[in-house]
Each structure stands twice: as structure tokens, then as C-alpha cells.
Computed example of a mutant assay.
Amino acid sequence: MNYPLSDRINNMSESATLAMAAKARELKSQGIDIISLSLGEPDFKTPKHIQEAAKKAIDSEKYFAYPPVSGYLDLREAIAQKLQKENGIPSSADQIVVSNGAKQSIANVMLSLLNPGDEVIVFAPFWVSYAELVKLAEGTPVFVTGTLENDFKPSAQQLKEAITPKTKAILYSSPCNPTGSVFTKAELEAIAEVVKEHTDLLVISDEIYEHINFGTEGHTSIGALPGMAERTITVNGFSKGFAMTGWRVGYISAPLPIAKAATKIQGQITSGNSSIAQRAALAAITEDLTPTLDMTKTYHKRRDMMLELLEEMPGVVTNVPTGAFYIFPDVSSFFGKSDGETTIGDADDLAIYLLNKAHVSVVTGGAFGAPNCIRISYAASDAELKEAMVRMKKVLSELK
């Protein structure tokens, strides 16, 4: 039987990170020792006090019914207070929408804002789902690409040149997935000045990695800059900084009309976020941040170790990422080379080569809008990372 799938689904790309993880799991099921550095998932357990909050919520038997579509009021109030205190973003509970992960948060925003043909400027390299979520909402992603020499960060001038009458919004992450780069306050101020030249132009700032920041300046939210609160949708969540990927809790803080629109969309799709997960999230955002700070210190040490190990691999060129838990090296020097059996044409080939020969799973940079690079996640144990680098160094040296 022919099943007539929609053009929407036929035109949508599969998530490259999830696809590579699936290939790695397939090889693992065959008994092959795969070291997975492909998923953006903390290797830490959710902190105990957060787990305990969820258990307490279950035992109370108060949280078994449908929660409010936009999230429990006390959680939204806590998020708004956090944004005001820590980020300097003016916010109130009615501007917060709690969703099933930051991915749904972004999807809600796109479906709320975009009409067919509207453009969204996406800073590249970009997280793999950005472009697909824009297209799902029948918008057009327009890529503005940063270079390795500038830590992969597009400039305000590049942004200015990319804006057209069809531009509805600008979307970026900082700290960035996949590059680990962090926009400085000065860089965001320059971007904000460009944005403010255009009526009704919005910024969607994905700050899911805000706690994983190694820079001396710290994290800057563009929504805190003068004149930007009413133009900014801040996206955040609990997956990365609190090791809560499976709990699926993300949120936006947005101008009230956009928050209401996102709530309307969410009400028709998921009805809201898990009641128990929200109680865990409330504990995460209001209680002890020590586990989060300790995780960040560990990531910082791992980054330094990984940079040292990658420096020992001729042909691998990288910058120094200052946040998240990724390194995004340029590997184009290996294109056209062969080990006698496999010829590397591009980063896709190299990622498969590393999986099959080194049994190390990484993700091709092509999925992130950077076809000369691969993304390596260092959200793994020190032992796994060291062994993975030994394997990579060996098989890369065989390419001539």
C-alpha cells in the first residue's frame, strides 16, 4: 500500500545527532565497543535534591491532574524571578511558557510567528533543529555564517547585510551548540543596535547552556540590553545545566502576545508539560546550584584536556570554545585522503570513517551548517575521552 506522507515530512531532514547516536547503538548491539561523543547529553545524573522533589510530588498525590498549559504558576514565577535576578531580563509569570524541552519551546515560537515565506536569520553554525523548525512553520531559514577565526560568531555587519523586508526574527544560541562559542556583551550590543534599526524585528536567544560557561565575563542575555526586552524571546531549560535531559522541561520568556500565542499552540499539541517534571524543575531553579557549578568545573577541565589531545593530531584545527561541552574542529585537511580502502570526501565521510574504524561516534558539521567540521561532545568520562582520542589519532594518521 502507498502511504501518502505530507510534503512537510518528506522535506524534513532527520536529526543528524540522533541519527548518529542510532548508528552507534546499532554497532554497540553487535558487541562493538563504541565510544559515543555524538549526543549533547550530560553524563552526570540529575542532582539528588531534584530527584527528591519529584518523589515528594508523587507521594503528595497533588500533581496527578493536567497542569496549566503554560506551566504551574509557582514555577513560572520562579523562572521570572530567576531571569530578573540572574539575567537582568524584565519578566513576569504571564510571560513564561513551560514546555516539553527547549525544542518544543522553539517550535511553539516558530508556529506562533511565521507565515509562509517569512525569513528567519539563523546564525551558523547552528543547532541541527533550528532550520527544520523554521521550515516546519513554512518559513525560510537564512544562514549568516561565522568563521573559525572569529570563534564561529557572525558579526553585526553580516547580520545587517542579511536583513530583508521578509526577515521576521534572528535565531542563535550562546553558549553555542555546536561550537561552544559565547557572544560577549560588546558583540551582543552591536547586534542589538542593528536589530533596533528595524521595526518589529525579533530576536530568539537560545540560552540553554548558560550555566556551562568558562569565560571570565560570564553570560550575557541580549534581552537585558537597553531596548531589547520587548524584542527578545529568551529560550532556556533544565536539560544541560541540571543534567535533566529526560525530564523534558524547557521554557520561554517572551513579550506577552507571543507568550499567549505559544500557549495557544501548546494547548492544541501537548496540553502542557509533565506535572512531576515541573516539580523537579522548581527545585532545580530555586535550590542549591552547587551541583551545577561542580559540573561546569568538570566540563572546563575536560575541555582543556581535549584541546591538548586534539593538538596532537596533525590536520585537526580548532579554536578554544568558552562554553557548552563541544569542540568543533575543522577537519577539511583530510578531505581527498584515503587509508587505502576508504576515501574521505567530506565531513560526512569522516564521521562514518571514525565510527567504523575508530569506533568513535561524532557528528558531521554539515548538519550544523559547517561542512568542513565535525562536532565532538566531551560530555563523557575522562577515561572514555582519552581512549576516544587515542583511537581517533591512530585512524586519522592512516589517511594519506
Rank of each mutant, 00 (worst) to 15 (best):
A57D: 02
I376Q: 02
K153C: 07
N236I: 08
G323H: 05
S221K: 02
T17I: 13
D339Q: 08
G139R: 01
K48V: 06
S332R: 08
L202W: 01
A78W: 04
S15I: 00
D118A: 05
I269W: 15
E387A: 08
V182Q: 00
L73W: 12
V195S: 01
I285M: 00
E149D: 14
S60T: 04
A93S: 08
F242Q: 11
T296D: 09
A380Q: 06
N100G: 09
Q268H: 14
V144N: 02
F126R: 04
G40K: 03
P67W: 07
A224Y: 03
D346A: 10
I285T: 04
F368W: 08
N115L: 06
P255C: 02
T220M: 07
L201N: 03
W127G: 06
G340T: 14
A358L: 08
L350F: 05
R25K: 15
V195L: 11
T220F: 03
L111G: 10
Q81V: 08
T216E: 14
I276P: 04
N11M: 07
E384Y: 13
E14N: 12
E61V: 03
C176A: 15
K394P: 01
P226A: 06
I96N: 00
I32D: 05
P165D: 06
Q268S: 15
L171C: 07
P68N: 00
E193S: 11
F335Q: 05
K264I: 14
D206N: 14
K85E: 13
Q30T: 11
P255R: 12
V249G: 04
G88N: 05
T140H: 07
K48L: 13
M244D: 09
H359F: 05
I285D: 03
T216F: 11
R76S: 04
K85R: 11
T179Y: 05
T290C: 06
M1Y: 08
D349F: 03
A224C: 04
G366T: 15
G315A: 08
V134R: 04
V98W: 01
A281W: 02
T298W: 05
T145V: 07
V203A: 06
N356C: 00
N177M: 13
S381P: 09
G241K: 03
S36L: 05
A54D: 06
L111W: 07
Q104Y: 14
W127S: 11
A347V: 04
V203H: 05
T216D: 12
F335C: 06
